[in-house]
């Protein structure tokens, strides 16, 4: 297990190095002057020159790359051109909204999907299965912003249980969680629908396996066989989907952030792209890549925890 983890960790580090080179290359090295791009077509040459100097573009590429990486390792992501504040502060503010929102949504999605998928699989072909499969079909088809608007209409405007948008900060954790609840539900529902379907089909595959028949021959009831033998084996494909969903939830929540007026990472990236603030774009993209790679690493560890065959095969 330790060797397996070490192996995955090595590949994590290599992935991060490769990703940083690609991101740096795409944004700073590929033809076209970033400074000129950021300032637009009407910029005066001396302004461009000043920005070039400020961004260090007059220095050799290798040196710039290492300066960028060294800075990131110390938490220094440079200074935003548009906001005139350190990028690290910008990100720190946003990540405290986006990360909890993603975790919240993922937790909700898992909490809904697991019981729904397991229930549907155990009642295959029955009324419960049909109902759940119908609901997940809807969940997959309907876009999350539409859910978001419906939720606002019902719970914020009519019932007035939640506010319709905005984020009060973490000074009052209860209020903070409350303001993230509707967005998290809107994000979670379509994901839960997908996850429930994967859980169901994966479980049904497992229920057809020989070892389930062996378990039944030992005297386990169908339900015991499902819980003790099928569920854990069915988790592998489900974990894959969870890993993909988390990455999506972290950065892909931009529409939901707009609907609920949340100051999240999605909005930051959207705004900095519109403002051509490449320094912010570069750092946020690197951060997202970092998170995705770390999540994949955790998913790999989870695979190994679930399936002993992967531990020895590293």
């Amino acid at each position: 297990m330790i060797r397996f983890a070490a192996g995955r960790l090595t590949s994590l580090v290599i992935s991060l190095i490769v990703a940083s080179i690609v991101i740096f290359a795409v944004i700073e090295v590929i033809p076209g002057d970033p400074a000129a791009f950021m300032l637009g077509v009407n910029a005066r040459p001396d302004t461009i020159a000043a920005l070039r100097a400020e961004m260090g573009l007059d220095q050799p590429v290798i040196q710039r790359y290492f300066a960028w990486v060294a800075g990131m390792l110390q938490g220094d992501f440079g200074t935003s051109w548009t906001y005139k504040t350190p990028v690290s502060d910008l990100i720190a503010d946003r990540i405290w909204v986006s990360l909890p929102l993603a975790i919240y949504a993922l937790a909700l999605s898992t909490l809904i999907a697991f019981p729904a998928g397991i229930y549907a699989a155990s009642r295959r072909g029955g009324a419960g299965d049909t109902a759940i499969m119908g609901a997940t079909q809807l969940g997959v088809a309907i876009p999350n912003f539409w859910f978001a608007m419906i939720l606002v209409l019902i719970f914020a405007i009519n019932l007035r249980w939640f506010s319709a948008g905005g984020f009060p900060g973490w000074d009052n954790p209860f209020q903070a969680i409350k303001s993230l609840t509707l967005p998290a539900i809107a994000l979670a529902l379509p994901q839960a629908a997908i996850l429930a379907r994967v859980m169901r089909s994966s479980l049904l595959d497992m229920l057809g396996e020989d070892f389930i028949r062996t378990a039944r021959a030992k005297g386990l009831t169908q339900r015991q066989a499902l819980w003790r033998h099928a569920v854990r084996n069915a988790l592998i494909p489900v974990l894959t989907i969870i890993g993909l969903q988390f990455s999506f939830l972290l950065a892909g929540g931009i529409i939901i952030e707009q609907v609920f007026f949340l100051p999240g990472l999605g909005r930051l990236i959207f705004q900095s792209i519109s403002a051509r603030d490449l320094i912010v774009v570069e750092s946020v993209v690197m951060l997202l890549v970092f998170v995705v790679i770390v999540v994949n690493f955790l998913v790999d560890l989870a695979y190994a925890a679930v399936d002993p065959r992967l531990r020895t095969k590293s």
């Binding site: 062996t214 021959a217 084996n233």
Partner: peptide, 12 residues
């Protein structure tokens, strides 16, 4: 059963 390769739960 016939097939010993698949008759056992691989994760236990």
């Amino acid at each position: 059963f016939q097939e010993p390769m698949t008759a056992l739960n691989p994760v236990q």
